[in-house]
């Protein structure tokens, strides 16, 4: 479904991504692991169409994002949505939660997700259903982001991410700014939602345990190169790349 082929990206003379290729199948969750500065977030931006790659192809359902502009890009974009790391920064502080949550639905009036069929014309009700899907009480609808806890904010951000029923949801370290007990809840929520909507995830993280818990396959990015790509159950296999093994050891020590 998502195909990333030989993608390269540099900022000035700094090579951030070097010849990265992988695929994600419908309904599959691919974990992308790497240290800070390994190019994870750049890759996410390229897939989201927020930036252009220097070389290579990124196709989603056969459509190449890179050569689209304006309205075309906007149309294609609805199939891929995002949940960012910091839920504080990812919600507009001056909008009540429900407006942030249904904003994408306002932008694509012709998109009717299956779970919103009956209420597509009622904004408040759509927001209510979306919040319910992510386990938030509808009493939070009118709240502003600063009146919510970190976990609640991240749930709201996830609600916005699934509102268009995208085929791919990019989770850019969705749990790393939350505390441990909330992390598990968010992971479980993401897992449930994926099963319910048959979405694919690109799950970016440096948390091995989280990735292993939620993903079928893992990819390891090191200094912009994809060094390892394997099934999650093979994480401890002897055939792993030395860098992967180092990451596993480091994770075990913590």
């Amino acid at each position: 479904m998502l195909q990333v082929k030989n993608v390269c990206k540099s900022y000035r003379s700094n090579k951030v991504l070097n010849d990265v290729s992988f695929q994600i199948q419908q309904g599959e969750c691919l974990g992308l692991i790497g240290g800070s500065g390994s190019g994870k977030s750049t890759l996410a931006k390229l897939i989201l169409g927020l930036d252009q790659s220097d070389r290579g192809q990124i196709t989603l359902n056969g459509i190449d994002f890179q050569c689209l502009k304006g309205t075309e890009l906007r149309k294609a974009r609805r199939h891929v949505q995002v949940v960012f790391q910091d839920p504080t920064a990812s919600l507009n502080p001056k909008l009540p939660v429900w407006k942030s949550v249904i904003e994408s639905l306002e932008n694509y009036p012709d998109v009717v997700p299956s779970f919103l069929k009956d209420v597509r014309n009622d904004k408040k009700q759509m927001a209510e259903i979306l919040l319910e899907k992510v386990g938030l009480n509808k009493s939070l609808l009118e709240r502003y982001p600063h009146q919510l806890s970190g976990g609640q904010r991240q749930r709201a951000a996830i609600a916005r991410g699934i509102s268009l029923q995208p085929s791919l949801l990019i989770c850019d370290e969705p749990t790393s700014s939350l505390d441990v007990s909330i992390q598990a809840q968010i992971l479980n929520l993401l897992k449930e939602l994926r099963e319910e909507f048959n979405m694919s995830y690109l799950f970016i993280s440096h948390d091995m345990a989280a990735v292993r818990y939620i993903c079928e396959r893992m990819a390891v990015l090191k200094e912009g190169m994809l060094v390892d790509l394997f099934l999650s159950e093979d994480l401890f296999s002897k055939r792993r790349h030395p860098y992967t093994r180092r990451l596993v050891e480091a994770a075990a020590e913590n």
Partner: peptide, 10 residues
């Protein structure tokens, strides 16, 4: 990120 998210949200 909220501006990026808005962009991604069309």
């Amino acid at each position: 990120e909220y501006v990026l998210a808005a962009k991604v949200g069309g």
